[in-house]
Design a protein around this nucleic acid. Structure first.
Lengths: 163, 163
DNA sequence: CGGAATAACTTGATGCATCAAGTTCTTGGG
DNA sequence: CCCAAGAACTTGATGCATCAAGTTATTCCG
């Protein structure tokens, strides 16, 4: 799996042609894909992609309840970001929060009926867009490669998650 | 246009296990990678990733000059976003703008000496991080796949670019 | 030749993300 | 016991992105 064993222990400074082309394409992807997902959800349901993610994560729980910090981990966000978003979702009646007694400041986010309905309403359009843009647009092999790459990169961004 | 009651001929509604895993990994990637790149550049040079991109694109031009809308295209951004950023970069003395006479509202962004120096100073650390997180972290085959995927997805996000 | 349409930006308002600091429980060491 | 340290959030300020609307040439065409 290790790509190279070059004589120089530190990697070469700049990127070669292929590396650069791959990186620039990736750059464009991470700039534009979030916007494309936001646009669909915003137009159809008035939701941010990140808001949708929060609702979706809660929807998957048996009791539609999950501790804030767990939701943060599941959505790859900071607790601070999540807190702000949940406050907004709470104001819209899609989520509530409840402190877990006898457990420090631990807090659960709970999806309301309206929140669940919103997630259910938003899912098909969102999934369709995800299929259209990504999942159905590339080969199964490339999709598997995308997963491998993503997981590898995430592990490097955040060392000390999966060890 | 035969009136059919058979199952929807379009793609299946939800994602299967592999698709979902790939998509969730991708989701985490597009959420966290930009922040990781920003963090390095911000800490080392006080630059946003996007600001760096603008400087880098201009650096590559023979006369360090490029029309605003071309820069926007190269950096995958809207002209509006670019305009705000260039205004900021101009205030910091890294870039100047000049109207192209006799060509409508056409405007060139020009890298100053300070801007070029900034780009040169920022490049090694940025490239090192890009290598560490992505380019050197995955196999050449996976990097090629990442490029294919990115280009495919970008083409779907923005139909009518390459035709 | 004149006025409408178009191209290429710029600007201002709004909203979301991030960072640092604050709050509130719980626990573990002296 | 009590105090200090830590865990798990929340809050407020700041800054960047986005969207809609405004500006300013230029071109098209009738």
């Amino acid at each position: 799996m290790s790509p190279t064993a070059s004589p120089d222990p530190s990697e070469p400074p700049w990127l070669d042609e292929d590396e650069l082309a791959a990186w620039m394409a990736t750059t464009a992807l991470i700039i534009r894909l979030p916007g494309a997902l936001d646009a669909q959800l915003q137009a159809d349901q008035g939701l941010t992609f990140f808001e949708y993610l929060v609702l979706a994560v809660l929807s998957e729980q048996p009791n539609r309840t999950l501790q804030m910090s767990v939701v943060a981990a599941e959505t790859s966000s900071s607790l601070s970001r999540l807190s702000h978003v949940v406050k907004r979702l709470e104001a819209e009646g899609l989520v509530t929060r409840e402190r877990v007694p006898g457990a420090g400041r631990r807090t659960n986010a709970v999806l309301t009926a309206a929140g669940h309905a919103k997630a259910v309403a938003a899912a098909p359009g969102h999934v369709a867009r995800v299929r259209e843009l990504v999942v159905d647009a590339v080969s199964a092999a490339d999709l598997a490669a995308l997963r491998r790459v993503s997981e590898t990169v995430l592990a490097r961004i955040d060392p000390g998650r999966s060890c």
